[in-house]
């Protein structure tokens, strides 16, 4: 192969000087990260750390991809700003919504084991006040909820 004379007016100069070796190193590190994730997933860690370790390694791997494969290391300025802004919104979206679920009174979350066992405080607001007609009764299920259009019968009718 002939080597072309390098046209040094190009913006890619720094990238070209770095050479292809950098991509191979990043690739090796990504494979290492995958192996570490796989092995650490077999280790039994206490509850939040299992997820945190997996996410930390995934973030480190993505940082390598974004910085070197996608050239954010060389191309700064507005590109970094756009990417960082999207990350901030991802964190806001996921963080606040999970925080909402985590901070709710448990019965307002969709039914699962613990919720169904729990007695509601105060007056029993979940049991239907009058017996519904047998035909209108939907097929039985533990987490049956009243249908949106179904009228609530007043007591004693």
């Amino acid at each position: 192969m002939t080597t072309l004379p390098r046209n040094s007016t190009s913006e890619h100069d720094r990238m070209e000087h770095a050479g292809a070796g950098r991509y191979w190193i990043v690739w090796a590190l990504l494979l290492l990260g995958t192996l570490v994730t796989l092995l650490l997933s077999r280790v039994h860690l206490p509850s939040p750390f299992h997820l945190l370790v997996a996410l930390f390694i995934a973030c480190a791997k993505s940082a390598l991809v974004v910085l070197f494969f996608m050239h954010l290391w060389d191309h700064g300025g507005a590109n970094r700003l756009v990417f960082a802004t999207s990350l901030i919104f991802v964190v806001l979206l996921i963080g606040l919504i999970v925080l909402d679920n985590a901070s709710r009174f448990a019965l307002t979350n969709p039914g699962h084991g613990r919720t169904l066992d729990m007695e509601p405080p105060g007056p029993d607001i979940l049991t239907p006040r009058g017996p519904p007609e047998p035909a209108a009764r939907p097929p039985s299920g533990p987490e049956m909820q009243p249908e949106p259009g179904a009228p609530v019968r007043p007591p004693g009718r």
Partner: peptide, 9 residues
């Protein structure tokens, strides 16, 4: 990951 490497190359 390897396909990403070949795109970068």
């Amino acid at each position: 990951i390897t396909s990403s490497l070949s795109v970068a190359l």
